[in-house]
Design a binder for these strands. Structure first.
Lengths: 163, 163
DNA sequence: CAGGAAATGGACCGTCTGGTACATAATGTG
DNA sequence: CACATTATGTACCAGACGGTCCATTTCCTG
């Protein structure tokens, strides 16, 4: 793409990046909606992780998550873009909370655990897995971590429960 | 510091960065050793997290972890530095495994859990917490997540256990 | 085929960067 | 005090960057 057409189309590199962020976020939201239409509770969460981490190509996996990378890289340098990225991430957070509340209602959580305490922990772990991905960890290793994690808080009768 | 003295002392920016990585890693290792001399098993792990995340100033917290930031930012751009960072991180991994094995021996882990399956999960979560820190999450929020996590795999009689 | 819109490839500009060279000043030591 | 070492500020270089401008070409449509 020529320089001229680029700036005619997008105005500046910054604007392009913001557009990309928007697209990424829109795609993620679409995925969440699609999953939500087919699964509920912990099954939805598990499906999301499977789709996000385990079905990605090795190359795509190594690229990590655009939003997480942005949060890490833009802090201090581009505060507005950094904030925009974290805002987008929090949206994923809200969906996760919704799923967990459903799971709570369905008694898929081990006794004593609540959706509101578990949700931030889950999103933190997902951040961690995305860093792992970028550090070159294999799909299998990531999957194992996720299954272990799931087994820690899921009732034994649901998928991923502890034997 | 003047330009001249800088290049006389460090050779290049790259070399300086490598030195900084080395120092950071050495400091971390020293902290690990110090903790290991006073605590064992899950107590050591908990102390480490407390010292790393909860005692840091708000500014230092927001800077996150140099190694994690490097892994995220240097992937693809500076493969050698990226690899060096991940190598350093894996060293922390090994220490964590040692602590968990001790915890296993002392029956501090919930039944059915093993050190070798738990350790990678823990380091992933720690990565996630460092991203959270960089995204501006508060010390309290981070502490809450950690306590929740600990309660998921710690025996109820040890610190952080579930009531 | 003709004509207008859109895409292209460069030439060009100011600025920032890592890095060098050097002349000058500060510093420590006999 | 004198001397060698070390640090400093500055001028300078080459290259990359984001961005603009424009002449030329491509492409779609009447």
């Amino acid at each position: 793409m020529g320089r001229g057409s680029f700036y005619a189309a997008y105005g500046s590199k910054r604007e392009l990046f913001q557009r990309v962020l928007g697209h990424y976020q829109a795609d993620s939201a679409a995925l969440l909606r699609q999953i939500e239409s087919k699964h509920r509770g912990l099954a939805a969460l598990d499906e999301f992780v499977r789709r996000t981490f385990l079905e990605a190509s090795a190359q795509r996996l190594r690229r990590g998550c655009l939003l997480v990378n942005s949060v890490v890289e833009l802090e201090g340098v581009h505060p507005d873009l950094h904030d925009e990225s974290t805002r987008h991430l929090r949206q994923l957070d809200r969906t996760c909370l919704r799923w967990l509340k459903e799971a709570e209602r369905r008694a898929e959580l081990r006794p004593g655990l609540t959706a509101s305490t578990l949700t931030p922990l889950i999103t933190s772990l997902l951040f961690g897995l995305r860093v792992d991905a970028r550090s070159g960890e294999s799909r299998e290793a990531l999957a194992a971590r996720w299954e272990t994690f799931l087994s820690l808080f899921a009732e034994t009768n649901v998928k991923g429960g502890q034997p």
